[in-house]
Design a binder for these strands. Sequence first.
RNA 1: GCCGGGGUAGCUCAGUCGGUAGAGCGACGCACUCGUAAUGCGUAGGUCACGGGUUCGAUUCCCGUCUCCGGCUCCA
Length: 644
Amino acid sequence: MAINITLPDGSVREYPDGVTGTDVAESIGSRLAKAAVAVKLDGESRDLSRPIESDAAIEIITENTEAGRHIMRHSAAHVMAQAVLDLYPGAKFAIGPPIEDGFYYDFQVEEPFTPDDLDRIEERMAEIISSNQSFERDVVSSSDAEGIFSDQPFKLEIIRGVDESEGVGGSEVSIYRNVDFVDLCRGPHVPSTARLKAVKLLRSAGAYWRGDENNPQLQRIYGTAWESKKELDAYLNRREEAAKRDHRKLGRELDLYSFPQELGSGLAVWHPNGGMLRKVVEDYSRQIHEDYGFVFVNSPHVAKADLWQTSGHLDFYADNMYPGMDLDEGQQYRVKPMNCPFHVLVYKSNARSYRELPLRFSELGAVYRYERSGVLHGLLRVRGLTMDDSHTFCTRDQLPEELAQHLEFVLTLLGEFGFEDFEADLSTRPEDKWVGDLELWEVATESLRSALVAANVPFQVAEGEGAFYGPKIDVHIKDAIGRRWQMSTVQVDFSLPDRFELEFTTPGNDRERPVMIHSAKFGSVERFIGVLVEHYAGAFPGWLSPVQLTIVPVADRHNEYANEVAAVFRAAGLRVEVDETDETVGEKIRRAITQKHPAIAVVGDKDVAANSVGVRMRGDDAERRGLPLGDAVAELTAAFAAPR
RNA sequence: GCCGGGGUAGCUCAGUCGGUAGAGCGACGCACUCGUAAUGCGUAGGUCACGGGUUCGAUUCCCGUCUCCGGCUCCA
């Protein structure tokens, strides 16, 4: 019997029944066969060695693709488990999936792994890899599997909970063996351990079984695997590059902010350079909010506990709030974790008419949230933050248009900060617990969806992941080195207007309840700046740079002219420093470059005589000498102009 | 909060198998007055995170606390 195999280019070849993926790959080319790790048969990933028994479309998965690396890493995880079980008798192994750029495996062992343990495990893995062990697939009944894994409680739990997505069927599971090691696994795997050419263990960490902190904490080992030493080194190099961009490190080097121990965890102080950066960012925020029809409101940092009771925060968010303080004969006050109740009170301060809506309230509001100590991370996760928060109140009819506007707003804002690559999550109504009116949920969700489509933003639907009070969009950006960050949120709220009994008067002189839209564009100013620092590696575009121009006098006698030049640039609106230190020109240039200042102007005898400057732009190796001062001012003011 | 690893000068780090410490950069001073990525010389600066214990003696060993880092968890 012969079967027909369709190749990705559409051509069809005839093979004997039972041909393997390896055979097919070899028939196409020996290089392809060498690079093959698995096949995709009618869209299903399978081992190379599995016989193909009917007509199918085939795709050879090679090791230099993401899908190929995924399989390789999964196999590497198996080898790691094998090594751990060899070295630590009695160890229980749980799950070991591939992840982005690597893999991990969770173990239950007597003692947590130390860095020395990782070295030992890595050595043992190298032995397993060089002994060229085949990965053999087998399908067994669930009850047989329970026998095989009788002393592995986590595997038993998986077998008993198995469903179609984890095994081959409800009553059967697939397992993979190599020599004396066997693991429950859906596969596929590389044909043999020898195909793992570049594996490295990175670190160990505690991790809860099934991600639930009520479950036992296991020891997770993270590793990475690549198709070649070269790719592995490139990856390790990328990690180093990312470390160089770390906003905590750059914050110190560029003198932007610090986290003094005396202050407390998760709390930052901003130095003058960082303060200027904040000012530029906040000024921009105010301007664009104004441009998009928002009005400014303001609110205090504390409020009576009753307010947080009404808003529901004490019911749903109390764990993240600072404890109360007793003031004025037992009156409880709370520090604010969010701005929404205040904006609601502004709404309530007047009887509202449909003529006023939509009302878009905006505030750069400082809020305090008690975050658990282990989650704090530089500026990206803090306990005191400033939200560029807004709350829009509109009618049901206005909702679709408002949501589209809000999305356009955040995309414009992110784009003007240099982020071009967006992705979004659309979170829809939870199944069980939700409030509001079903029809309105539909309208809001569809409006968000069509706004995303219209804005051409790729998005995923997080079905049922929304808050109980309304659907939302989270916008993520991709930074300069490809990392994704969640930034803006547009969140519909059907609950707060109810809780506070908000109303407006309709054209027919009835009372109706407005709908509310929460939106944070930066997320928080702190976090946004942290992401900006990492995105630009501290080399901010001119309009954001705390110092835009450093003026370098060649010798003391040029200081006076340097200051005159500085005054001219400052009058044109630039942020200028004059370096009058007792250093050589080379050293002053080096300092300005190290501080990532976008422009340097050197002034010497010839410039004094000609009313000119020598300009060197960041990133250029060369300078332009003798540029007339007026030309330089015009050029730099244009180059460093803020987007709005 | 949980698991692991750290905390030595402003920064980056070395060091002390228990006898109170050192470099580079930075800062400060002096000289140099210089045309595009480091001028030279000199000086100051440390309760070795904090508290307790062991010891003749603790920065070093032990315990606790704080804090940072990597994860987990959390992120209505």
